[in-house]
Design a protein around this nucleic acid. Structure first.
Lengths: 209, 209
DNA sequence: TTCATATTTAACCATTTGGTAAAAAATAGG
DNA sequence: CCTATTTTTTACCAAATGGTTAAATATGAA
C-alpha cells in the first residue's frame, strides 16, 4: 500500500475515534481495526498515542479554520456576507458536531495544548488571530455601525450558530424532537440568527446616536 | 465515619473526577484517593463505576435544574425576569463550566442515557419538560409579544449565556485574554445579552404587525 | 459481655492498555 | 540476481484497570 495512503487512512480512523472518545478514552487497537491494519504498524508510523493525537487535531483544526476564514474574507455586501457566514458556520457544525463538542471538552483538562494548537494552526496559515476582529470591525464600520462592539458581535454569532447544534440531543428533551426534524430547523435557525443579529445591531446603533 | 458523610465525600470526589475526565477517562483509584478511602470501599458503597457515575450525574443535574427553574418561575416584571434569568444562567455556568462541557461531550457517544437522565430529573421534581416553553410563552404573551417564537427565544437565551463561557479558553486565543479578565466580562456580557434579546424581540414584533 | 451486622482494609485477579522486539515481507538500487 | 532499506506482522511485556475475596474492625442491640 502507498505510504501516504495508509497514513491518511490511519488519520481518518484516528479522527473518528478521538473525536468520539477523547484523547483518554480512545483506544489504539480500535484505531488500528478501523484503519484495517495492525496495532504495531500504528506505532511504526506515529510512535505514540500523543503524537497521533496531535497530528489528528492539527488536521481537524486546519480544515475548520480554512473553511471559516474563507467565508470571512468574502467581499460581498454586508447582508450577504453575514448571511453566508451564518449559513456556513451552521452547516459546518451540523456536519461535524463532534469536533466542536470535543474542543470544548478538552478545554476541561485545563491544559493549554488545544488553545495553543489552535493558535499555531492560525499562524501556520498566515492568519493573525486579530484578523478576525479586524475584519468584523471593518465590515461594521463600512456599514455605518462603528459603535457596535465587534467582540460581542463575534461572540453572539458563534454562540447562536454553534450552541443549538451541539446541544441538540438535550434540547430535544425540552422541545420535543419535532423541532429539529429535517432541514426545517436549519433554515429557520438561519433566518432567526440573521434577523436577531441585524435587528439587534440596528436598534443598538439608533439608540447610541 | 458517618455513612452519609462518606457517601457524600465519595460523590464529591467522583464528581470532580467524572466532570474532568468523562465516564471513560475517570479512574476509580483516583476517586478513592480524592475521597481519602480505599478502592474496595468505593465498590462496597456504589458497586460499579456505572452506578457511581449515574448517581453523580443525577445529583449534578438536580442542582442545576433546581437553580434554573427557580429563576424561571419568579413572577417579577418582564425586564427584571429576563435580566435575572440571564444573570443566573451566566453565573451558574461560570462557576461550573465543567458540567456544561461534560454534558455536551457525553452527547457524542450517541447514547441516550444522559438526555433520558435529564428528563427523569425534571420529572422527579414534578416539572413537565413543556413547562419551560409554556412559561416563556406566557411571559411573552403578557408582554404583548405573542408572535415571538418561544423556541428560538429559549435557544437564543441559552446559547448567548452558555457558549461564550464554556468556549472561553479558545476565544481568548482570538480575542486576547484581556477581554475575559475579572468581572468586567460577565457584567458587559449580561447587558449585551439583555439588549440583544430585547431589541431583537421588539424589532421583530413591530415588523410582524 | 456476646453475637450479629455493617464498615473498612489488604491482597489479589482477569483483562485491557500502550508499547516493543524481532522476524518476515515487500521494495528499490546496483 | 544480490543487498540494503522500508514496511508489515506475530508474539510478547509491563503497567494499569475495574472488580472480588476474605479477613479484620467497628457498631449496636440484647
Amino acid at each position: 500500500m502507498a505510504i501516504e495512503g495508509i497514513k491518511e487512512r490511519i488519520i481518518q480512523a484516528a479522527a473518528a475515534e478521538f473525536l468520539q472518545k477523547g484523547s483518554g478514552g480512545a483506544r489504539m487497537q480500535v484505531i488500528a481495526d478501523k484503519a484495517g491494519i495492525n496495532k504495531a504498524l500504528l506505532h511504526y508510523h506515529f510512535q505514540t498515542k500523543q503524537r497521533l493525537y496531535e497530528t489528528v487535531l492539527r488536521q481537524q483544526f486546519s480544515k475548520l479554520i480554512d473553511s471559516l476564514f474563507e467565508q470571512l474574507e468574502k467581499e460581498t455586501d454586508f447582508d450577504t456576507w453575514l448571511q453566508s457566514l451564518i449559513r456556513k458556520y451552521l452547516r459546518e457544525i451540523m456536519t461535524a458536531p463532534g469536533l466542536s463538542r470535543f474542543v470544548l471538552w478538552e478545554l476541561n483538562s485545563g491544559a493549554k495544548v488545544l488553545p495553543q494548537l489552535f493558535k499555531k494552526c492560525l499562524a501556520d496559515k498566515g492568519h493573525d488571530p486579530s484578523f478576525i476582529l479586524t475584519t468584523i470591525n471593518r465590515r461594521l464600520q463600512e456599514e455605518g455601525l462603528g459603535n457596535i462592539d465587534p467582540v460581542h458581535f463575534l461572540l453572539n454569532l458563534l454562540a447562536l450558530c454553534i450552541y443549538p447544534v451541539i446541544a441538540k440531543p438535550i434540547l430535544e428533551q425540552i422541545l420535543g424532537s419535532g423541532y429539529f426534524k429535517a432541514g426545517d430547523f436549519i433554515a429557520s435557525r438561519e433566518e432567526e440568527i440573521f434577523k436577531l443579529l441585524k435587528q439587534g445591531i440596528y436598534r443598538q446603533n439608533e439608540e447610541d446616536k
